[in-house]
Nucleic acid binder design. Structure first.
Length: 104
DNA sequence: GTCATGACGGATC
DNA sequence: GGATCCGCCATGA
């Protein structure tokens, strides 16, 4: 609609249930731009406070850069606290907690 | 309207 | 699984 892709991205990210995570590509797909996962990342960087951007990860199951949430450890702590299973290698168990944004 | 940029994804090695 | 290269698209200046 008139809302920019960024607005739609914020809306979807805000709907991510606790204990689950989604990928930039999935969000991009939900906003109608399956080829624009970069926009999602960009939107996260510009994201206002209150947005659970820590629940958004890349498809590899790895978290965003260390300095994005006050530390890689901090983001992992938040996710684990919500019930997101982590693997021994420090990555998220995508097959178990992946959530597909059906909002759009 | 054009240029440069970006919290990525996929393919390939 | 990890690292590297290329490509995609919207936003901001």
């Amino acid at each position: 609609m008139d809302k920019s892709v960024f607005e739609q991205i914020y809306d979807i990210v805000a709907r991510i249930p606790e204990g689950q995570v989604t990928t930039y590509g999935a969000i991009a797909l939900s906003v109608g731009r399956p080829r624009a996962p970069r926009m999602v990342g960009n939107a996260m960087h510009r994201a206002p406070e209150g947005l659970p951007c820590h629940r958004v990860v890349n498809k590899t199951g790895a978290l965003a850069h260390e300095d994005a949430f006050g530390g890689e450890f901090f983001q992992r702590y938040l996710l684990e606290n919500e019930g997101v299973p982590f693997l021994e290698n420090g990555r998220i168990d995508m097959r178990a907690c992946f959530w597909f944004p059906d909002g759009a």
